[in-house]
Design a protein around this nucleic acid. Structure first.
Length: 478
RNA sequence: GGGGCCGUCGUCCAGCUUGGUAGGAUGCGUGGCUCGGGCCCACGUGGUCCCGGGUUCAAAUCCCGGCGGCCCCA
């Protein structure tokens, strides 16, 4: 069965239907916030991971795997950090039928795990920079959960860097932002804005937090990644120090970066999907080109299937992920099935194609068919690959831009928020103001300032009317 | 944190008010079918009615507790 609601009318229901009907997840496992990831989802996720890992390693990061369990005393070392995370930690307190002598946390994030080792590994300026990452799941005791948006277990990458100087650390933060753009925008066509979070919304233990927000179809912003300037706070807490070239002991400057694979997946589904289901960007699609044979008699079947196999080989030979769908189902059924799953290109081959020597190619994003001469196939597929990406980018950016609005009065702000817009407004900078906003519209948050933002005179605060020192982004958030 | 709705073949749902034989659609299997947009026809298959306790001659149905899911509000 197809999707029965429209994305615009009822996003929540649409999202749930796509998740199950495109066979991405099964939520019947029975532990809240923990979902079973099915092959179609895992193959997409694996591609996303690959893209990030490739980019990270180009930037000098190396892969590691740290233990899932973190002893309580590690977690406790940095005061702000514990305060932020403790309320949502899962604890392991027993082994077999014995009570453990010390509680072990399921990592909610791995700063304290990494940095306990960094203090052992870093001795000299020659050990720096140290740039490591891991692709893992983390665990947080969340109240309300939704697949890919908020889970008690979710997938991400966490990169942890240590540098000799503050300058290098700040450069890393920029590199992290660039890393996100190279994958999420350049290849997945998901638009976002990087903002400097207000002080009260910083990562627990960070000097500064920069986070990427995208916009979901019902008008809520979703944080898909964040990168943090940790300064020397963790270096102090974990005693991570090195002897510099000048012979002096110094603390390292640290950064950490977390692209949320789960949330990028959510954004991908939500932003590109349509009434027929998923629409996958070419590069992440587990099957990029599906070939559907159409025949009636047995005799015709042999000819058509042979041609399909030939086309598949040709595509596979050129490096595309291609598949001939030989299932005993009607062509119409298969059309719908692959559209639900978001496969970017479909080639239909039947008597007509064999007789004419051309192929019917259907593209998922525009739902249009084009005729392609068989000998031009590879060239046309490559063209379509780019054309699909451009089309997805165009649509996504059009949506994103059309939802950002400058506002200067309270009433317009509230109306904009209720209409699912991101408002840009003058702001006094006080947390009390931001807190008060939240009581007016559910989920309304001050998300932060643009990266190149300078404090100055921006008129009157949109909320309290006192002098505005900043211009901030305000939107409803997940 | 507060409030509401829900849990019945794999899936979606009816049955519950008024206790007594679990029913449909879809899926799945087999066969047939010009099968190019989720065809159609026939036959078959499939359920400890979420779990535990209670009331009763008798519980999917009534009562209590738990678990799980969804929605709204803070």
């Amino acid at each position: 069965m197809g999707i029965t609601v429209s994305k615009q009318e009822n996003f929540s229901e649409w999202f749930t239907q796509v998740l199950t009907k495109a066979d991405l997840v099964d939520t019947r496992y029975g532990v809240q916030g923990f979902v079973v990831h099915k092959p179609w989802a895992m193959r997409i996720i694996r591609e996303i991971y690959r893209m990030f890992e490739e980019e990270l390693e180009k930037g000098g990061h190396e892969p590691v795997l740290f233990p899932l369990l973190i002893p309580e005393e590690y977690l406790e070392k940095e005061k702000e950090h514990v305060k932020g995370f403790k309320p949502e930690v899962f604890w392991v307190t027993e082994g077999g039928d014995e009570k453990l002598e010390r509680k072990l946390a399921l990592r909610p994030t791995s700063e304290t795990a990494f940095y306990s080792m960094y203090s052992l590994w870093i001795q000299s300026w020659r050990d720096l920079p140290l740039k490591l990452y891991q692709s893992v799941s983390v665990y947080r005791y969340e109240k309300t959960t939704r697949p890919f948006i908020r889970g008690r277990e979710f997938l991400w990458i966490e990169a942890h860097c240590a540098f000799a100087t503050r300058e290098e650390a700040l450069k890393q933060v920029k590199e992290d932002m660039e890393n996100l753009k190279k994958v999420v925008w350049d290849r997945l066509a998901v638009p976002f804005v990087f903002l400097r979070r207000p002080p009260w919304d910083k990562f627990a233990g960070a000097e500064d937090t920069y986070a990427a927000d995208t916009l979901m179809p019902e008008g809520r912003v979703l944080q898909i990644a964040s990168t943090h300037d940790l300064g020397t706070r963790f270096a102090e807490a974990f005693n991570i120090a090195f002897v510099d070239k000048d012979g002096q002991w110094k603390r390292v400057h640290q950064t950490c970066y977390g692209p949320g694979i789960w949330r990028i997946m959510a954004a991908l589904i939500a932003i590109h999907g349509d009434e027929k289901g998923l629409v996958l960007p070419f590069d992440v699609a587990p099957v990029q080109v599906v070939v559907i044979p159409i025949f009636y008699s047995d005799e015709e079947r042999d000819k058509v299937v042979a041609k399909c196999n030939l086309i598949e080989e040709k595509l596979a030979g050129a490096g595309y992920r291609a598949l001939v769908d030989l299932r005993e189902k009607t062509p119409g059924w298969k059309f719908n099935d692959w559209e639900l799953k978001g496969v970017p290109l479909r080639i239909e081959i039947g008597r007509r194609e064999i007789e004419s020597g051309s192929l019917t190619v259907f593209r998922r994003d525009t739902r249009k068919r084009v005729l392609v001469k068989e000998e031009e196939l590879l060239q046309r597929v490559e063209e379509l690959r780019h054309s699909i990406l451009e089309e997805l980018k165009r649509r996504a950016m059009e949506f994103f831009n059309s939802r950002i609005i400058n506002v200067t009065d309270k009433e317009t702000l509230l109306r904009a928020a209720k209409n699912g817009m991101i408002a840009v407004a003058p702001f006094c900078g006080r947390e009390e103001c931001a807190e008060d906003m939240r009581t007016q519209v559910e989920g309304l948050r001050v998300r932060g300032t643009e990266l190149n933002h300078q404090e100055g005179d921006y008129g009157k605060c949109i909320w309290c009317g006192s002098p505005a020192r900043q211009r901030v982004y305000i939107a409803r958030a997940y």
